[in-house]
Computed example of a mutant assay.
Amino acid sequence: MARALLTLATLAVLVGLVALMWWGYRNRRRRQADLPAFPQAPADLLAAVRAGTAADLLPPSTGVYASTVTDAGWQDRVAVGDVGFRAEATAHLLADGVLFDRTGAEPVWIPAEDVVDARTAPGIAGKVMGGDGLLVVRWRVDGHEFDTGFRADDKDDYQTWVPALRALTGGTP
């Protein structure tokens, strides 16, 4: 009898925790309802990237798309759409912008004119590596700023990606 009560109590706690997580995520989605629509990758550009005929400025970088967060903080994950969820991805730097072609999710497109800065960081919501484990792109849409994190399979890529992304902004590489 005591074992059955302990099992029921444990299940009740787990159900309660899941309900609290759902409630928090729902409230975050409501709080972010005023965020602008994110830009969609042009269909012809996406087709060229997937066919391998796009004019990449750098060799594509494979890795994991960590998430997109608001400028409120590195843990304020965007809950609108699927840009807040991690997925395997290939990052492409093109003259028109940055494309994170995600496996099993919509691609994330950042037009060149929206890129504000690039840097490395120890973490972002969904992935904490420590050191300079992530490439983070700061970008702007309709007055809202976002950080998008990407963990490359080869961390040496960051040495070329950060200056190249900053060059898109017209900043000093």
Rank of each mutant, 00 (worst) to 15 (best):
A152Q: 03
A19V: 06
A95V: 10
R28M: 14
T90R: 13
W109C: 04
R28D: 14
A121F: 09
D132K: 05
L11C: 15
G104W: 00
H144N: 14
R86W: 10
D76R: 02
G143N: 07
P111G: 02
T120I: 09
A41G: 04
F150G: 04
G97N: 05
E145F: 04
P39A: 09
D82K: 00
E113P: 05
D147A: 09
D117V: 08
T62A: 15
D82Y: 01
L35T: 02
G143C: 01
D76I: 00
D56Y: 01
D132S: 12
D153V: 02
D56P: 08
G104E: 00
E106P: 10
G52Q: 07
W109Q: 05
Y65D: 04
A37G: 12
A55T: 12
D142F: 01
G84Q: 05
V69S: 06
L94C: 06
A47S: 14
V136N: 06
D71E: 14
A79G: 10
S61M: 15
A79P: 12
H144D: 13
A48F: 01
L134I: 03
R29W: 02
V64Q: 13
A87K: 01
V128E: 14
P36K: 04
T90W: 00
A41M: 05
P36V: 08
P122D: 08
G63T: 10
V98K: 09
A112Q: 13
G16R: 05
A43Q: 13
W74F: 13
G97V: 09
W23D: 10
R138W: 08
P60M: 04
A105H: 06
A33I: 12
F85R: 11
V98R: 06
L46A: 13
R86F: 07
G97D: 02
D56W: 00
M129W: 11
W109P: 03
P111A: 02
W109Y: 11
P122W: 06
A105E: 04
G16L: 00
P59C: 10
R29H: 07
W109D: 07
H92Q: 01
G130Q: 06
G52P: 04
G133N: 06
A112H: 03
A87N: 03
A37D: 15
D132C: 01
K127Q: 14
M129T: 15
G84D: 06
A55E: 15
D71A: 11
A41R: 04
G84C: 09
L35P: 05
D56I: 00
Q75T: 12
D147R: 09
I110A: 10
K127A: 12
D142I: 04
A47T: 12
D44F: 02
R31G: 02
P122F: 03
V128H: 12
L94H: 02
W74C: 06
D71W: 01
A41C: 15
E145Q: 14
A87F: 01
W74Q: 10
D117M: 01
A12P: 08
L14A: 15
L35Q: 07
